[in-house]
Amino acid sequence: MSSLNNALPTGAQSAHAILMVDDEPQACKWFARLYGDEFVVWTAGGVDEALALLLARGDQVAVLLTDYSMPGRDGVELLSEVRRLYGHISRLLVSACADKAVAMAAVNRGHVEKILEKPLDEAVTRQALREALAGAQRRALDQALVDQRAATLRETLGFLAHEVTTPLATVRGYLAAMRERHHDAPEGGGGMARIEQHKPGDVLFMIEAAQRRADYAQSLVSTFVQTARDACRSDAPLSPLASDLVAAVRDEYPFDPGEASWLSCDLTADFRLPGRRDLLYLVLSTLVKNALLALRPALPDDPRVCIALGAAAPAPGLPEQSVIRVSDNGPGIVPEVLQRLTREPVTTRADAGGSGMGLVFCRRVMGSLGGTVDVRSMPGQGASVTLYFPPVEETRA
């Protein structure tokens, strides 16, 4: 059983104990002594005692083994309650020959997964406990994965909502400005309304900027819609190439006028990415946005943002991993902020709507893929963020 436990994440390993329920104290002692060499065995002397133990430590119980005939509430009643309240627990019933009809009814109603006859055969019981424990841990693992995916989905959708809201707020601002400048056509003017310009070209600038941000918001939504469709297909496509991801961000990001010329890309060390495009697209877009925002307040003579594909070791002595590095030649990050980045929400742009969640989100996405995020900076010497990716097999099984 140790090899199975080592293969499971912590959440699934927490369900590990065998709970044996019998109203005969000697039977409980005998069971714990005989099977305690292989399993963690807890015992209870009746239904109420077992339910009290489960209320306190139910997440740690993997298998319930209960006698049928007990005074007061019987074993089938206990199994029914456990099925309702603790879906991950494997349920086994011990019965004598006289109880077989009741036991079979319990099987048919789904209260119990297996019946063991008295007196217990040690070899048969050990194998039944091994199989039940493995099944419970798999169910716990499945539920942990479902819970993790649900939490990731909630967090991702929240961050996506923020990323979509920001460009849409800009669009609304430009539309409100144009509405304020709108003038109805005067009587006899041929029905031609006009929008007043404060300086040459500023209306066209607002229209084009609004269009870029609307397109970017649409690209985010479209990416997630396509991912949802792919998730329902049995022939899901191979993981994307890093160069394709960089090209998508380069082509779809809503750069302000002139900003696109700041961006350079080195795609020579291409590699295949783990995970789906949607989250990684958000990650890379976030890093590009952060670099641009760092440059805008005090532009250097030659503003630069570089996206480079390559290979690097995350720490001395470790093997190299494929990386995407986003760097800029902006003002850099002060040490007290740098040491907190990626671990907690930190922003120096709260007045501009910054929440500080960008790098935290990036770290969580990379962590879910088995990768890491490293941020390096010196004040006055720009900053770089490196995404380290685990290797990806070239073909699917």
Rank of each mutant, 00 (worst) to 15 (best):
T170S: 06
A140L: 00
Q137V: 02
R233N: 13
S219H: 10
T152Y: 04
L204H: 10
L157C: 11
A169N: 12
F159V: 03
A151M: 08
H111F: 15
A209P: 00
R213K: 14
A177E: 11
D230L: 08
V203D: 01
L175D: 08
A217S: 10
E187C: 11
F159G: 03
Q197P: 10
A132M: 01
H162N: 10
L175N: 11
D99E: 15
G191E: 04
H111L: 12
H162E: 12
T156Y: 03
A185M: 04
L220E: 05
A161Q: 15
E117I: 09
D215Y: 11
D235E: 13
A242S: 09
L220S: 01
A169L: 06
S234W: 11
A214G: 06
D121I: 10
R172K: 10
R149E: 11
L116N: 01
Q137L: 01
L133Q: 05
A169K: 07
A106N: 03
G188A: 10
D184M: 12
V124M: 14
A140P: 01
S222K: 09
K114M: 10
G158T: 12
Y216P: 02
Q127S: 06
V203M: 00
F224V: 02
R213S: 07
P237N: 08
R229C: 07
R109N: 14
A144L: 11
R181D: 05
D121R: 02
A105E: 15
S234P: 01
G190C: 06
A136K: 05
R213P: 04
K114A: 05
G135T: 07
M192S: 10
T170G: 09
S219F: 05
D235I: 06
A177W: 01
Y174D: 13
V203I: 13
A228D: 13
A176L: 10
A231N: 11
Q143P: 00
L238K: 12
G110D: 08
Q211E: 14
A177V: 02
Q143V: 13
A150W: 13
A242D: 06
R179P: 01
A228T: 09
E131Y: 02
S243H: 06
H182A: 13
E163A: 11
F159P: 00
Q211C: 10
C97I: 13
L120E: 06
R233W: 03
A136Q: 02
Q197C: 09
T165V: 00
V171C: 00
R181N: 10
A236Y: 09
T156F: 05
T166H: 08
D99H: 03
V221L: 14
F159N: 05
L129S: 00
R233F: 03
S219R: 06
V112D: 02
A185F: 04
E196V: 09
F224G: 04
T152E: 13
E113P: 02
P240E: 01
V171Q: 01
T227I: 07
H182I: 07
E155Y: 10
T227G: 06
G188T: 07
F159L: 04
Q148R: 15
M192K: 08
K118C: 05
I195K: 05
E122L: 08
D235T: 13
H162P: 01
P119E: 04
